[in-house]
Design a protein around this nucleic acid. Structure first.
Lengths: 225, 225, 225, 225
DNA sequence: CATGAATGAGTATTCATTCAT
DNA sequence: AATGAATGAATACTCATTCAT
């Protein structure tokens, strides 16, 4: 019998599981409420009292699952970071062609930004509210994502499909253009939805990166203009 | 004698001039000190007390030239806005060719960002500290700058030198890439100085925008890879 | 068979006995843990949470045996009070000679202080944390102990062995000198152990109280200098 | 011309003097109000808000002259410490005879305790509210005072007027008896005023310390029984 | 005009106590 | 009876702004 648990061991396991589930549930409540208030008011103006009200719990309960107000910010930012790490590599794996792979990665990155627009903005707006450690973690993560993109670009250059560029610079630019969907949403909003935004930027990127003779193979990526 | 002023009128004029000069001088002191502290600590952590010390004036004096703490932020942000309005059109005027004009505008924009990196960052970080009016003014100004760029792009498309693109989207992208020098300076810093950053991005942009057959005319802009 | 209990009555009695025993046991756990934490951190800094951990019970259990945090303080202070009432009269009873009786009482008092140094200190330090009623009870008890001493002193004066003094003042002084072992333990510690402290103070007291001609009879009490 | 001050130097001196005077005045306000509230409610229950109201200033003003709530406690305790250091040695100097000198010192010590009864109590009650440094400073000061007394006692023993005792122990006892006036005021109050309390204790002390044959010379000290 | 002392509203965090399980 | 998660009142300290000198 697999995973049989008997006696007190089983009880302990059960209790631990319940506890873990509750923690996750509570953190979820806090995350949801915080995301809403942060997008409306920013970190400084978000009062713990209001957060508690919004989350439907007491102030004390929040502090049972979180040590400082800053932790709440990190909770939100962590959420988007985890999504990047999960979605972007997943979208790129199994795609052979470097152009297609880069496009898939960029598209996935943009979709995550779109799904967490508030958090993506916060990463820019609340830098000064995040501790040095948190800040450095964020920067490191961005460098990590950059490396997925720059890997593609190097491959593309080797295969002769890409123009000669500085991979680090271009990958940083791609990341920037993905964040742009959150940063300039107030403006882009009236021009695009996410999908058409991605198409538009991919067409811009592909025209720049892919050398003329190969561009015909990526007509589907160039259509978004 | 032209513009002779005599009697009380003359005195009043002189007094007004002195007053205006003093105001400018004080605001300059405040601006300089604020820029320094803001880049170090952000808006929330910059105390008026510290600002007064840094500027070498008393707290009371600051409030003689400024109504609220937010005004100080606007002072700094205004400074970069004025520079944009002054430098970017000046750099573009008298340049006939749309590609060259766009390049000149982009370069000028980036140089202003570089000269006011702190302020450029603040415009993103302290959005939530700026009143609705201030925020709307900033957005409007950005749209205005976008229009310089989109004008070029439309010209370029008419002349057949540019690929068919959505001018509003591309001009927003160019603005974003200029701001990127401030936003990602922590990363770009190790790869570029301003000039090489501009060259690199211009080469990226020109490759994307200018249709293949015309690119040979802009070899000097494509060198920055 | 004596005290046989049968039927439901007997069960009830038994249940009551069990209940009483459990209460005593739990209060004992709490008392021990509280004494430890109070001596380390004082009343304010002792958290109920920590107390529960130290006692090896849950917070809820503590509140099943105690109504407020203050009650825990009273529990500790009561403990020393009960000891005074038990030990001091017991030590004095059956001692005929007033000098010897006073000495025995003082010695017993000091031994209780030594055995409950934490509690003796708390009675001074946490006055403000104890309710009016508790405070008044403490004061009344001290007056009661004083009376044991002042009784001796009056006897001693009648018998001509003691100098003429104000019994209330001297007995209060004796009490103070017993408490001193707890209050100044940080200093006395390096000079004495309890026994030698008692000897030393008794010699001081006897020299003062017993008139010259009788002092020779109490050489054993005067040796502790 | 004495103390002529001219030019800017003179102004600066004046400004500094005004500033120093204001600081002293404000600290005095705070000290007075704090002494009152502390004696009524203890440290924990004394709210800064109430203190401000009592002192007739704003909360902010208090924090302009004090860094933490604890500092306010130290302010009060320091006040009595300074008095000890000023009054006790002053009273003892120029008194040749060791018995008289000890008596003068003890009397002075008691008078200071009486003048600062609240503070004297606080030193016992709020130990746990005082930082380690503050606590150590207090203990060191008490040791210092003890040394004045023990010096006398050693002199007295050398001159043959005093019985053979442990000076450290006896001086600690004297200090304790002085503090007793504050600690047991609730009881002694009905028996004595300060002067008669001092007389009473001095008679107790002198009877114990001064050897029989010399006691006749100190009849004025033995009267207080 | 310049000064800087005074103001006091505003807020993160703690912890005794409760009560559903 | 025992548990411990949830509660929310309570409070020290900060700092933008004012205004008498």
């Amino acid at each position: 019998m697999i995973s049989q648990s008997s006696g007190s061991d089983g009880n302990l396991e059960g209790i631990e599981a319940i506890r873990a589930a509750r923690i996750e549930w509570r953190l979820g409540q806090i995350l949801t409420a915080a995301t809403k208030l942060l997008s409306q008011q920013g970190f400084q103006k978000m009062l713990i009292t209001d957060l508690a009200k919004e989350a439907g719990v007491s102030v004390g309960t929040i502090y049972q699952y979180v040590n400082t107000k800053e932790d709440i910010l990190l909770l939100v930012v962590n959420d988007i970071i985890e999504s990047y790490r999960r979605e972007v590599p997943a979208a790129m794996e199994d795609v052979e062609d470097p152009v297609e792979r880069l496009a898939a990665g960029f598209r996935a990155y943009c979709m995550v930004v779109d799904a967490h627009r508030t958090a993506a903005l916060l990463a820019y707006q609340e830098t000064k509210s995040i501790s040095k450690e948190g800040r450095e973690r964020l920067m490191q993560l961005e460098v990590e994502t950059n490396s997925y993109f720059s890997g593609c670009i190097e491959d593309g250059m080797k295969s002769g499909k890409f123009a000669t560029v500085e991979p680090a610079a271009v990958s940083a630019t791609l990341t920037m253009l993905a964040h742009m969907w959150a940063l300039k949403h107030w403006y882009l909003n009236s021009l695009f939805d996410v999908t058409s935004y991605v198409d538009s930027q991919l067409s811009f990127i592909v025209r720049s990166l892919v050398v003329g003779e190969h561009q015909t193979n990526y007509a589907h990526l160039l259509a978004g203009a």
